[in-house]
Simulated assay, not measured.
Amino acid sequence: MTDAARPAHHADQPRHADERRRADLAGRLAAVRERIATAAVAAGRDPAELTLVAVSKTYPAEDAVILHTLGLRDFAENREQEAGPKVNLVTHQLLGGGAPRAGGPEAGAGAAADPAKAASTPGAGLAVPDRPVWHFVGQLQRNKARSVLRWADWVQSVDRAALVDGLSRAAVERGRPLSVCLQISLDPPRASSGADSSGVAVSGRGGIDPGAVSELADLVARAPGLTLRGVMAVAPRGESPRGAFARLRNVAERLVRDHPGATVISAGMSGDLESAIAEGATHLRIGTALFGERPGVP
């Protein structure tokens, strides 16, 4: 091989790697969609009722862009410090590339009420049906509320009253409502020392005690800039997920009696999505089955 030929050979390597990754993600997405459709039919449900949320934590922006081109629109992150730059990169790649705007996603994602703000908003240049919808699903610290709302459309992990005021103020400032799910602890009593004074289950995994849901729901529903959408939970370790998701369904049914618009049940991950669908899940948070294993990541 001549020296002149070598650069072209090496230049092809990234392109071939991109093609392999696209094929891998397309195959994984097809398999997940088939699992969802099969489980929905078995439960007597319409697969079209279900929203697949790709949990893209630790994976590069390029993976989210590929899945977006394959038709996915909902993506989730659980670490604010990783999510902000990633959302910015995804937005700019979907808009045709170019260097990300200095300052990243500080203006927030999606259409802003102020046209001047909209010009610097991640995703604002994309047609609304095409814009990615970003969910925050990690445990949220009070001092991170403003940072998370620079990019998040949803926060699915609200589990204490102390978070509500900060989220409300940040949502009002950005001029666009935030969709909120209450994170419910499904840990059995023996796995938890109960709940703290704000009703948060003390199990180290986040989530409000089911008995404290009503008060928190009322608080969110009254808060300016917040829209109460429903509940979210993670199946506890060492227990059948079906039984845990049945408990979540009971909580959701009680919630919707007082808040008819709060119909979302965000439950089910790669290993238990079938159980979640059987118990009424509307949003499925899928990571490993879509992206592959995450070595060394808890």
Rank of each mutant, 00 (worst) to 15 (best):
A4H: 13
A8Y: 08
H10Y: 15
H10C: 15
D12S: 15
D12G: 14
Q13P: 08
D18G: 15
L25H: 14
L25M: 12
A26W: 04
A26K: 10
G27P: 06
L29H: 06
V32E: 06
E34Y: 04
E34W: 09
E34I: 00
R35V: 13
I36W: 01
I36V: 15
A37R: 07
T38F: 02
A39W: 00
R45D: 01
P47G: 06
A48I: 05
L50N: 02
V53T: 13
K57S: 07
Y59S: 03
P60I: 11
R73G: 15
R79A: 11
R79G: 05
Q81S: 13
K86A: 04
K86Y: 09
V90D: 09
V90K: 02
T91A: 13
Q93L: 15
L94M: 04
L95T: 12
G96F: 06
G97L: 03
G98I: 07
A99K: 13
P100N: 08
P100S: 08
P100L: 01
P100D: 02
R101P: 07
R101L: 14
R101K: 04
G103N: 07
P105E: 08
A107M: 10
A112C: 11
A112I: 03
A113D: 10
P115N: 06
P115W: 03
A118Q: 09
A119S: 07
A119I: 14
S120K: 12
S120I: 15
A124R: 00
A124Q: 05
W134T: 11
F136V: 08
G138L: 11
L140W: 02
Q141H: 14
Q141C: 08
N143P: 11
A145F: 11
S147M: 15
R150L: 05
A152F: 08
W154F: 13
R160F: 11
R160T: 10
R169G: 14
R169F: 07
A171M: 04
E173R: 13
R174M: 07
G175A: 01
V180P: 08
L186S: 00
L186F: 02
P188S: 10
S192P: 10
A195E: 08
S197M: 13
S198I: 10
G199W: 08
V202L: 14
S203H: 14
G206W: 07
I208G: 10
G211D: 06
A212V: 03
V213N: 01
S214D: 06
E215M: 13
E215G: 15
D218K: 14
L219H: 14
A221Y: 07
R222F: 10
P224G: 09
G225I: 05
R229G: 04
V231G: 00
V234T: 09
E239K: 04
R242D: 12
G243P: 02
G243L: 02
A244T: 01
L248N: 00
L248T: 03
L248F: 00
R249A: 02
A252V: 00
R254H: 12
V256F: 00
R257D: 02
D258P: 03
P260H: 09
A267W: 02
G268P: 01
G268Q: 00
G271V: 12
E274H: 03
S275E: 11
S275I: 04
S275D: 15
E279T: 03
G280I: 00
T282L: 01
H283D: 10
H283E: 03
L284C: 04
R285S: 11
R285T: 06
F291I: 07
F291R: 12
G292T: 11
E293W: 13
E293Q: 13
P295I: 13
G296T: 05
